[in-house]
Simulated scan of single mutants.
Amino acid sequence: MSVSSSPEAHASCASPVWVESMGGPLIVVPVSALEAWRGCTETGVMVGDATAPDDYDRACAVDGPAGVIAVGENGAQALVLADEPATSCFLPEHRAFLRWLAADSEAGLKAAAGAVLADPATEWEKCGTWSSDGPATLMDSAEAGSALDTEYPGGGKPSQASVALAAGRWSVRATHTKADEETWVGLVQMLPIES
């Protein structure tokens, strides 16, 4: 038996951290660009009376199950898990985000996701290319990256999960698959693009 010391191998042994949204899309922002992600602001279109979209407005505008948008002005990109605000986690061993569309249990959902990922007949939708410089954070797109560690007035902090990811260019694909009558699996997977 071999032992791997990679962050992805260690992360796959632990139970995943599930992230919920307040109703909008979840987003994966590189740690290096978190400070540049402003989220939902009073100067945006959704909350304010502005005509220029804020970061949250841009995340909400992503069409399809996933897409990539710019973060800040330094060329960073974020991956938007769009289509619906499903509670999601990162499965590092598959470089995939698992979206809880419908399931009786986490174990059942993860087992169904494993079967979908292993099935060569699974139909995938292409969702573009994402470039990332390494580790990222899965979070609610309405939150500002700078406020993730700030406690809410009523207690608690914004929902977030670390995403152990190597720097690289990724081809993004997504699927929503009915595994059985009770289990619907949503996946957004990143496949490395060779340079």
Rank of each mutant, 00 (worst) to 15 (best):
A142S: 03
A115C: 14
S132C: 15
A113P: 07
A107Y: 04
T129G: 01
G114A: 14
A142F: 04
T122L: 02
A103C: 08
E106P: 13
C127P: 00
T137Q: 10
D119K: 06
D133A: 10
A113C: 09
T137L: 12
M139D: 00
C127W: 00
L91P: 05
A103S: 13
A111Y: 03
G128W: 00
G108S: 03
P120D: 04
H94D: 15
A136H: 02
S141E: 04
A113R: 01
T122V: 04
T137S: 09
H94F: 11
W124E: 01
P92F: 01
G128F: 02
L109T: 07
G114V: 07
V116G: 08
E125V: 10
L101K: 08
A121N: 06
L117D: 06
A111R: 11
W130K: 09
A115T: 13
S105V: 05
A142K: 00
T122E: 05
F97L: 13
A121T: 11
A102K: 12
L101H: 12
W130T: 07
W130E: 12
W100C: 13
E123C: 12
E143S: 07
M139T: 01
E125N: 03
P120E: 06
A103T: 06
F97H: 13
E106C: 14
S131M: 13
L91M: 13
A136W: 03
K110D: 02
V116T: 14
A103N: 01
S132E: 09
A113L: 07
S132P: 09
T137A: 11
A107H: 08
D119V: 04
K126A: 15
G108N: 05
A113M: 05
F97N: 10
A136K: 00
E93T: 07
E106L: 08
A113S: 10
W100N: 07
P135W: 02
R95S: 14
R95T: 13
H94K: 14
W100K: 10
T129I: 13
L138G: 00
K110V: 11
T129Y: 04
G108L: 00
E143Q: 06
L109V: 13
A102T: 12
R95A: 15
L117V: 09
P120F: 00
A136C: 15
A112D: 03
T129H: 06
K126D: 15
G114F: 05
L91R: 10
L101N: 06
S131K: 15
T122R: 03
D133T: 14
R95D: 10
T129A: 04
A121V: 03
E106F: 11
A96D: 07
A103Q: 06
K110C: 11
P120H: 01
S131A: 15
W124P: 02
L98H: 12
L91N: 07
G134N: 03
